[in-house]
Simulated scan of single mutants.
Amino acid sequence: MTVVLIVEDELLELEFLKSIVSEELLADDQVFTCQSGIQAVKLAKQHRPDIIVMDIHIAEMDGLNTLQEIRKFLPRAAVVILSAYSDFFYAQTAIRLRVQEYLLKPVKPSVFRQIFQELLTTVATGQEQADEEMMDPDTESNQRDFIEKARKYIHDNFRQKLTLQDVSSYAFLNPQYFSRIFRKEVGVSYTDYVNKLRIEYACKLLETTSYPAYRISSECGFTDPSYFNRVFVQQMNMTPKAYRRKHLCDSADNGSNR
């Protein structure tokens, strides 16, 4: 899992950057945004982004001072600085703070996309190297053991709020590494795997109870009923209400044919 933080106080520019970043990320990746330096430091401490896209001229604390604070606890994060000015002092300070790219506004979408793709590759390579250092020679065997342990934990707890971080911590793996080997060993992403279990359980509840959809959503581990509805439709090609109606009709037809 890759975590990206975008810091930009111009709303249109923020949406532009977020749209490109979101197109390049996987389902398990995360994007956080904010519009001030103080918010940026707080979010960076909380979510520890792998990539930071930062405008220099932001509220409360400028981008370079913000980055200086973030570097104290995230020395290896990849950083792109955006600036409307080609000021030598800014560029010099950015180099000292180990900034990967210093881009002048307005940034062309194609240029930003290419640079962001390069940063994703750099981050993935760094994560793989760190993971290899963590593992012993029996890596493939260990991977299978870790994933089997994680799958059992998921099956026992999917009806509760269960994040990727929760499961990776249980398996004693960092979230990024766990996300990659889970997809490799199981064939689907962590999110899709958990959602499949939850929707299967939701179908059982729709068939055997009269619970309303919002309660079934909660019983299955979803925290947002509208998200539950979207996932249900995606997997079953019908709404929960339509699924229950279909089940009742099928049951009635089977009963009348006996």
Rank of each mutant, 00 (worst) to 15 (best):
N257D: 14
P212Q: 03
T208R: 10
R180A: 12
P109F: 05
T223N: 10
S83I: 02
Y170I: 04
K105I: 10
A171R: 01
A202W: 03
E133Y: 13
V31I: 13
S110I: 15
L206D: 02
F232Q: 00
Q100A: 07
E219G: 01
M236R: 14
R198H: 05
V3Y: 04
A130I: 05
L25M: 07
A242P: 09
Q92K: 14
S110D: 15
V123E: 02
D29M: 07
K184T: 14
D55H: 10
A150C: 08
L14G: 01
S83F: 00
D62K: 04
T223Y: 06
V79D: 03
E60N: 12
F172S: 15
P109C: 06
L26V: 04
N237I: 00
Q234K: 15
Q234C: 07
L119E: 09
H47N: 15
Q234Y: 09
L120D: 08
D29Y: 00
D156P: 02
F232A: 01
R96Q: 13
I115L: 11
Q165L: 04
K18F: 03
I216M: 02
L206A: 11
Y227C: 03
G37P: 07
A202Q: 08
A124E: 12
E185H: 13
I216L: 01
Y102D: 11
E140P: 04
M135D: 10
T33Y: 03
E10H: 11
Y102G: 13
L64K: 04
I95C: 08
E148C: 07
S256N: 11
E128V: 07
Q160F: 10
V21G: 05
V188C: 12
P212V: 00
K105G: 08
I56N: 05
H57D: 13
Q100M: 05
H247W: 14
E200L: 08
K241M: 13
T239H: 09
D136V: 08
E185R: 14
R244W: 01
Q117R: 13
P240M: 05
T66L: 02
V41R: 00
V3I: 15
F146R: 15
S217R: 07
D55T: 10
P137Y: 12
Y214N: 12
E69P: 07
I70W: 03
S83V: 06
Q129G: 01
S217W: 01
K42M: 04
I6V: 14
D224K: 11
L43A: 08
R96K: 14
D9L: 07
E118G: 09
F158V: 02
K42W: 00
L11E: 15
D166Q: 10
